[in-house]
Design a binder for these strands. Structure first.
Lengths: 228, 228
DNA sequence: TGAGGCAAGAATATCGATATTTCACCCAAT
DNA sequence: ATTGGGTGAAATATCGATATTCTTGCCTCA
């Protein structure tokens, strides 16, 4: 007795409701549509996302391990709170792990990889005209491509998680625009050029300084007004 | 932090069924009761663990992010497979992250921490007579106590995850016994002494050599007989 | 004989409903 | 006035049932 019109989207395979829900919730939390510390009520989300309770609970469980959602036993879920300490830990870990991953990746570089790096950089440059979210996707793709050849999937996963956590702070600060306009292009180009030429030390320097610059920029906001 | 699985712990209420299920499944996978790559059928687990399908699905989702379980969209869950590459990545990452965490921890050391380290070491030494699982819990507690003061919870969580993944290989190799009997006591003592005296370099050396020794030992097993 | 496809069976994903638990508020008693 | 207890409302955790999807084995047709 159950017709779901969204389910019959021409032959091309749907993903599971859980996966859809996971992606939507993640985006909502990262972009700040759902604020830090906000209570995530099943019933509310059920209506908002037009799905049942089970997919939502599962998606939230998944997000828990991404450190985007906290589970309070017997008391539901809430979006992870933010804090200066949290931000600083993310930045520090990110620098350490991406440094490691980038060096491994460069060590194993080959032509196909170099081409993918150039391409993703190009796409990102092009995407500066698009909306914030579209640009951020391309931006992430570029950074992840740089790490693509690193030793293993676990490290890549950690980096990806930390990336999302970091981006979240940028969205919350509402500075995504400003960031895009900052002269970040040259920083990206420096990283890319060094990586492709195989100079791991230089590439890592550029990468970390890129992160720390953005980091210092955001850290100031904590001293400013908001941020409970 | 895990007490007796029977629910009636005086006064303090039960944990949720999801949490119980999570702990049980995790233990079963880590200790090899559930083998690598094994299909995890909801219905089977439902009967085996005497609970409903929802808690099991949620527990499996949680385990997915610990890299102990893989989710195959629309095709259920399976215990993560093992491989030499996977093992080596775990070992390498573990060395890198625990090195970092241990140094941070030592840098912030204080008397209360030193006492906890000594105590957990003592408990571990004592526990060598107990069963494998009991000893492994104490062993983990000791190592995690060493990292207790590190900068943040994310790093600790990563270390804890990697620890479990590593231990799993030891169980799968069926060498937990042998490990216990190896002269691991002196290695632990060296680590502890260096940590407490504040010599981060020395402590880290001891810790990493401790891991690598065990690592080399296990790696040989891959060349030996089994391991699908 | 082999490839392709259909059908039955099994397993998953999801829904709706219910039993517990928690939370917020009010009232009484000191 | 403040604390303690109790009550009702809201939300969660869990269960049982159903719709969907995948798998496997068999049968037909070239």
């Amino acid at each position: 007795m159950n017709f779901d019109p969204t389910k019959s989207l021409s032959g091309s395979g749907d993903q599971s409701a859980t996966h859809r829900t996971y992606m939507m919730l993640r985006r909502m939390i990262v972009t700040g549509v759902i604020g830090p510390g906000e209570k995530l009520k099943i019933e509310g989300l059920r209506k908002r996302l037009e799905t049942g309770a089970s997919p939502i609970r599962e998606a939230l469980s998944l997000l828990t391990s991404d450190n985007l959602v906290e589970r309070i036993d017997q008391r539901g879920f809430r979006a992870s709170p933010i804090s200066r300490e949290n931000f600083e830990e993310i930045l520090g870990l990110r620098c350490a792990l991406e440094d490691m991953a980038l060096r491994q990746s460069i060590a194993k570089r080959n032509q196909a990889w170099e081409e993918r790096v150039v391409l993703s950089h190009h796409h990102m440059t092009r995407g500066q005209g698009s909306g914030d979210e579209a640009f951020e996707d391309l931006h992430k793709a570029f950074h992840m491509t740089l790490l693509e050849l690193c030793e293993g999937p676990i490290l890549r996963k950690f980096c990806s998680q930390l990336y999302d956590l970091n981006i979240r702070y940028r969205y919350l600060a509402g500075q995504s625009d400003q960031y895009k306009r900052r002269d970040v292009s040259s920083e990206h180009r420096d990283i890319m050029d060094a990586a492709i030429s195989g100079d791991a030390d230089l590439a890592s320097d550029h990468l970390l300084s890129h992160y720390r610059k953005t980091g210092a920029f955001l850290a100031d906001l904590f001293d400013g007004t908001e941020f409970s």
